[in-house]
Simulated scan of single mutants.
Amino acid sequence: MTITANCAAGNQVDVVVDKWVLRMKKKGDVTFNMQTTTGAAFELTQKTAESWPFDEASPLKGNAKTKIKDKNGDYGYNVRLACAIGVSGDSVRVVIDPDIIVN
């Protein structure tokens, strides 16, 4: 899965997610390719303990390869992005809510 985010002028964040719903087999490998040319920060986090579809603990940061749990189900998780605004220390934050369906 590839997620591309770039910080744009006017405090905007441009985001492209290549798969909003990912269908996987139990114990399958998934690789997150998080790309930016402007320094956007990425983090994958769980919505709830029950909804975390990966064997590795939350959060996953940057590019990550992980295994899907050995349990069928529909799992939601969050992709959190942040772009710094100038030198003030403030940031624009975005939360994306894709799903993984395991069967």
Score class of each variant (00 low, 15 high):
4 T>H: 13
5 A>Q: 12
5 A>L: 13
5 A>R: 08
6 N>E: 07
6 N>W: 05
8 A>G: 02
9 A>K: 13
9 A>V: 15
9 A>F: 04
10 G>S: 04
10 G>C: 05
11 N>D: 08
12 Q>M: 14
15 V>L: 14
17 V>Q: 06
17 V>G: 00
18 D>E: 10
20 W>D: 09
21 V>D: 01
22 L>W: 05
23 R>M: 03
23 R>K: 09
26 K>C: 09
26 K>E: 14
30 V>P: 09
32 F>P: 00
32 F>I: 04
34 M>V: 01
35 Q>I: 06
35 Q>H: 00
36 T>N: 02
36 T>I: 07
39 G>P: 09
40 A>P: 09
40 A>K: 07
40 A>W: 06
42 F>H: 04
43 E>K: 13
46 Q>S: 05
47 K>P: 03
48 T>G: 00
49 A>R: 09
49 A>L: 13
50 E>S: 14
50 E>N: 11
51 S>Q: 15
51 S>L: 11
51 S>A: 05
51 S>T: 10
52 W>L: 01
53 P>F: 00
54 F>K: 03
55 D>W: 01
60 L>P: 10
61 K>N: 08
63 N>W: 02
63 N>A: 09
65 K>D: 03
65 K>W: 00
67 K>W: 05
67 K>A: 11
68 I>N: 02
69 K>L: 15
70 D>W: 04
70 D>A: 13
71 K>D: 07
74 D>I: 14
74 D>L: 13
76 G>T: 11
77 Y>A: 04
78 N>P: 00
81 L>H: 01
83 C>A: 04
84 A>C: 03
85 I>N: 10
88 S>W: 01
88 S>P: 10
88 S>T: 13
89 G>I: 12
91 S>Q: 14
93 R>A: 13
94 V>S: 14
94 V>C: 11
95 V>N: 15
95 V>L: 15
95 V>I: 15
98 P>Q: 13
99 D>G: 08
99 D>N: 11
100 I>P: 12
100 I>A: 04
101 I>W: 03
102 V>K: 01
103 N>C: 01
